[in-house]
């Protein structure tokens, strides 16, 4: 029997019913969900990047601590570089949570991190922009990190 003539007496209908108004609302509902999912995914990526940078900072510090014969200024420089990276990532996270555009994010977060001596005034500026929660988190991170030099530079 040919496919076209099979089950002719049954036809192509199905017995399943769709609730009234379902198709009118579903597109907008799905778009809202898709945008929400996209936003959450972006936040998650930023958080992961922050953790990755923090983890690499700790790893470098540990490595430097256990490495015999490493000169102190080199370690200091590496730690300072990583500190700058962490600050950049924190700024980027803040920018994203404030829902600014990609172009503005690029302005806030330089693509290449420049490793320079950070002046105490700049750190104060960054700290003043942070919320209480973020300050607490940062303080906890500084306290728990044995290798961050707290003596005046």
């Amino acid at each position: 029997m040919k496919e076209e003539t099979e089950f002719q007496e049954i036809g192509k209908n199905t017995p399943y019913k769709v609730p009234d108004g379902f198709f009118e609302k579903i597109s907008e509902k799905t778009l809202r969900k898709a945008k929400q999912r996209e936003q959450n995914r972006r936040k998650m990526l930023i958080t992961l990047r922050t953790f990755a940078v923090a983890a690499s900072l700790s790893a470098i510090a540990l490595l430097a601590y256990f490495m015999p014969g490493t000169e102190e200024p080199v370690i200091k420089q590496m730690v300072q570089n990583k500190q700058t990276e962490v600050k950049d990532t924190i700024r980027l996270t803040e920018a994203i949570t404030k829902k600014i555009t990609i172009a503005e994010i690029k302005k806030v977060a330089p693509v290449k991190t420049t490793y320079k001596e950070t002046k105490p005034e700049e750190i104060t500026d960054v700290l003043s922009e942070m919320s209480d929660d973020e300050l607490l988190q940062l303080a906890a991170m500084y306290k728990s990190d044995l290798f961050i030099d707290e003596s005046p530079q």
Binding site: T14, Y16, V18, P19, F22, I26, K29, T30, L31, K33, A34, K35, R37, E38
Partner: peptide, 23 residues
């Protein structure tokens, strides 16, 4: 709907399908 039968499941899968399309 023909594959999963339940309307609720079909709605979830339809949304998941188009969320993937959006992404």
């Amino acid at each position: 709907r023909r594959l999963v039968v339940s309307h609720e499941d079909a709605e979830d899968i339809l949304q998941e399908t188009f969320i993937n399309v959006y992404r």
